[in-house]
Design a protein around this nucleic acid. Structure first.
Lengths: 193, 193
DNA sequence: CGTGGAATAAACCGATCGGTATACCTCTCA
DNA sequence: TGAGAGGTATACCGATCGGTTTATTCCACG
């Protein structure tokens, strides 16, 4: 019977290899043979576990979201108020999920054809970040228009993460964090729209 | 002798085909044979004009920048003050440069390997937009910290254009325009930091 | 003891990739 | 008049693509 794909040692190594290769070089530029070789696994094992490259791509995106989300919640739990800037900081502090090539989900969206199952993962990831951001802002700037402010900060965040891949550095993420912090202070101070 | 690549009718049609195909389906997913067929041209003609796919990609990016820039300046020339929101509107009004798949330059950055000549075009394009934005802001909000405000609006803009490709619509670009407009009004009103 | 899942090793499939080669046609212009 | 540029048509190249097949080994578990 088909195993849950990443419950097996080889399955995990495949997902590890796919995680770094797809992110660093792009999805279409990386062949399944390279993923298998990097994982120290035969193509047969890869196809036994994942069935197709499309499915592997979906798993790659799902895992990237789950890893990032777990890290985010961990950092948020340890962060003092205001916690909104900590969300930005979380992008800079993950030990394995680099940011040198920008946002894995925006990058995947640039490559995946319409109708690919990965689109659901991409949209759900962005929706989740956007929602979590609104929650944080509601607690950081009570009384302000949280939805309006969340959309504002979300665009700052997305612009920054996208440009990390072009600039090759994290500078713009720090800029976005500082701008968001200032917005929060202004909105907490004078709660008028 | 090698012609300037796009000075010839066939060269222009190749660039037209590459423009829509590379943008819609991604650079790596589109083969030179498809570009040639779409342009109604043989592969030989394509290689006679452009030499390699890498060079064609560079030309594609350069042309996209030039077309977009010409359109921007045209719109800016016709726009009343404040002209900063008109920059955002320009993304929505170009007759041929759609926005359904997001930003062609961010997308290309997701696909191109390090060292590819296209990177220079990408970085130069973003630098140019960022600079033009600072100029517009300096004229729209005199007295304010133009550099600081430009970076803020630039991140809003980039977040919006990246997400147009994920949402599949232009809504977020309009949101970014409205947020920028409000920022401008605030900075023009109380010029304090 | 033996069955079935997880794995390796390696060959193979048709299709497509970027790029080249050969031959021929047409038009311009010196 | 004839050379050279721009072009078509088509076949070809080696490499790689995603994916399959066959055979074999290992080991846990009933």
């Amino acid at each position: 019977m088909a195993t849950a794909a990443d419950t097996t040692p080889a399955g995990r190594r495949i997902l590890d290899a796919a995680g770094s290769l797809f992110y660093r070089d792009g999805i279409n530029a990386v062949g399944v043979a390279l993923v298998a070789d990097t994982a120290g696994v035969t193509k047969k094992t890869l196809y036994d576990r994942f069935g197709s490259k499309d499915e592997l791509v979906v798993r790659y995106l799902r895992r990237r979201h789950e890893d990032w989300w777990a890290h985010l919640e961990e950092r948020l739990a340890a962060a003092p108020a205001p916690r909104t800037p900590a969300l930005m900081d979380a992008y800079l502090s993950h030990p394995r999920l680099e940011v040198e090539r920008g946002c894995a989900f925006i990058n995947a969206a640039a490559e995946l054809p319409p109708g690919h199952a990965g689109w659901d993962v991409i949209r759900e990831h962005k929706r989740a970040v956007r929602t979590r951001l609104a929650d944080l802002i509601a607690e950081d700037a009570p009384g302000a228009d949280a939805e309006d402010l969340a959309e504002h900060v979300f665009l700052l965040l997305e612009g920054a993460i996208a440009h990390c891949g072009i600039d090759g550095g994290e500078a713009r993420m720090r800029t976005a964090r500082d701008l968001a912090t200032r917005l929060l202070r202004q909105s907490a101070g004078g709660a008028a729209g």
